[in-house]
Amino acid sequence: MPPLFASLRAPRQQRSQASFERMIAAAEALLRERGNDDFTLQEVGKRGKVSIGSIYCRFDSKDDLIRAVQARVLDVVNADQLAGIARAEAEAQDLRQLVMLLVESIAETLRNHAELMRPMMLRATTDPIVSAAGKKSYAQIADRVRGLLLTHRSEIRQPDPDRAVQSAYRVIYAAIARYLGFGSATGAAWEGDWRELKEDLGRMCAAFLQSAD
């Protein structure tokens, strides 16, 4: 995913690339540890063994460094999501099984990346560039899931299948995001049983799609 900002100055030499990677890794580690972006570039430099001058050679500000971390994280998350969706597609024999497999895959992928997704979503509430990148990532996965569900259109009994699969995905994502404490839902993180949440989400969404009411 290309960054949605223009101030990143990509390194060209091998030594510069190594320094750049340490900056990204240090900022990522601090985001994981703090659960937010409440750290300084001095801390990034100390953790990554790079000078403040080197950081400013690559980024105009701490904001741009965090946006670069987000771009890297979203690349990994999206790749994992798409791989999980492909596995669900290969294994599912019918709509109900597909929904159950998709819920499992989406939930576990987001949980695996929750330590970085959580502070990024928190930042998205105040940073329009981070917000736009997150929305773009969400839309990419949502479109893939909706398209896959609609390959089972003959099993969907809702009067408007397109609307139904869109609503189902929104419910799935919102419930998982709330459990993981994404965005403004940090106070609700880890409430309830994770396994039961996944099972109930899958069953409810499959039943909804296959209901004519």
Rank of each mutant, 00 (worst) to 15 (best):
D37I: 08
A26K: 10
K62R: 07
V76M: 10
G53F: 07
I55G: 03
F39M: 05
C57W: 13
F59S: 02
R67M: 01
E33D: 14
A29D: 13
F20W: 07
V44S: 05
K62H: 01
A29Q: 12
V44K: 02
V50N: 08
F59M: 05
L74E: 12
F20P: 06
D37T: 08
A26V: 13
V77M: 02
A68F: 10
V76Q: 11
N36F: 03
K62W: 02
A25L: 08
V77E: 01
M23N: 00
D37Y: 06
C57V: 14
A29L: 12
E43R: 11
T40G: 11
D64Q: 03
G53E: 09
L41Y: 06
A71R: 08
C57P: 03
G45W: 05
Y56F: 12
G53D: 08
V69E: 03
G53K: 08
D63G: 00
V69D: 06
D38F: 04
S61H: 00
I24N: 00
R47V: 15
F59L: 06
M23L: 06
L31I: 04
V73F: 03
D63C: 00
R47H: 14
G48L: 11
V77G: 05
K49G: 13
L41M: 14
R72S: 03
C57G: 14
D37R: 12
F39S: 07
E21Y: 00
V50Q: 09
F59E: 05
E43I: 09
F59A: 06
V44H: 06
L31H: 02
F20C: 07
V44F: 11
E43V: 11
S54Y: 15
F39Q: 09
C57A: 15
L74N: 03
K62M: 01
Y56G: 05
A68G: 04
V73C: 00
A68K: 02
R72Y: 03
S61T: 10
N36V: 08
R34T: 11
K62I: 02
D75C: 05
F20S: 04
R32A: 10
E43Q: 15
R47T: 14
G53Y: 04
L74G: 04
S51G: 15
A29W: 08
D64F: 01
N36Q: 08
I52S: 13
D38E: 14
Q70I: 00
D37P: 05
R22F: 11
N36E: 13
A25P: 07
E28R: 12
V44I: 14
V73S: 01
K49A: 15
A68S: 07
I52N: 14
I66M: 01
D63V: 02
R72K: 10
V73Y: 03
T40V: 05
Q42M: 15
D37H: 12
K46N: 15
L31Y: 10
A27H: 06
G53W: 04
V69W: 02
I24R: 09
G48C: 08
D37M: 05
V76D: 07
L41P: 13
K62V: 02
E28F: 04
V50H: 07
G35R: 07
V77I: 04
D60S: 09
I66R: 01
G35F: 13
D38H: 13
K46H: 14
L30I: 07
A71T: 09
